[in-house]
């Protein structure tokens, strides 16, 4: 996964609330067995409208997306994160996310920034004309107009994003603890290992 520290560029002032992952990437795009190329299907239903934000020249390869409350709700499809990544998005800024989406985003090097609605409203206004700067190290979002918003992030997620860490390699270091748990279960709850009668 590509590490992420500072991102500066245009931000798509999308702002909609309760955007589900079916909207981010419709089911017909889930038939792929690869992670690549899903940007084509990203927000397909919205992009059917010729005036849509995503296809405006100024937002091509914009690295930031500003969204409303409960972004990425619904289906667990990681294809949503892959599709955003393929569009060039590295940061989403919203008041809240579905739990599954924010996890998927982090695992794909996309930073989900949480800011209150008032900050979102201000950033939406700025994004219409000017770039936005996001710094993960200092946990700040700034604009060319001296706006400065700080955000919270789970320290483990921050570390994974800053270092581009592969979580599986990290977990494999806990092999002894996993094996110990398995042995304990085998002894105290043998019925947890499924066998056919």
């Amino acid at each position: 996964m590509t590490p992420i520290e500072k991102v500066e560029g245009r931000a798509i002032p999308f702002g909609l609330k309760n955007v589900d992952t079916d909207v981010i990437i419709p089911a017909k795009w889930l038939k792929t067995i690869s992670r690549e190329g899903l940007g084509q299907g990203a927000f397909e239903t919205l992009r059917a409208d010729p005036d849509n934000l995503f296809d405006r020249p100024e937002f091509q390869r914009a690295p930031i997306l500003i969204a409303g409350d409960n972004f990425g709700c619904g289906s667990s499809r990681e294809h949503a994160a892959w599709a955003l990544g393929d569009l060039g998005i590295r940061v989403v800024i919203a008041p809240s996310y579905s739990d599954i989406f924010s996890g998927n985003a982090v695992k794909n090097g996309i930073l989900p920034v949480v800011l209150p609605q008032a900050a979102i409203d201000r950033l939406m206004a700025v994004a219409a004309t000017d770039p936005i700067h996001v710094d993960l190290d200092t946990q700040t979002v700034t604009t060319p107009f001296q706006d400065r918003f700080t955000f919270d992030i789970d320290p483990f997620r921050k570390m994974c994003l800053l270092q581009g860490l592969d979580e599986i390699s990290l977990t494999e270091k806990s092999e002894a603890a996993i094996a110990a748990h398995e042995q304990k279960i085998a002894k105290t709850q043998p019925w947890l290992t499924p066998t056919l009668a």
Binding site: S76, R77, E78, A81, D99, I100, G103, N104, K107, N108, D154, F156, E167, I168, L170, T171, E172, S174, I178, E182
Partner: peptide, 23 residues
């Protein structure tokens, strides 16, 4: 019981665990 993304599917296949924050 809860839904997970594909990276987590791979993580569970490989390690039979997940790294989680308590809800």
């Amino acid at each position: 019981a809860f839904g997970i993304g594909t990276s987590e599917v791979e993580h569970v296949l490989a390690t039979q665990t997940l790294l989680l924050q308590p809800a």
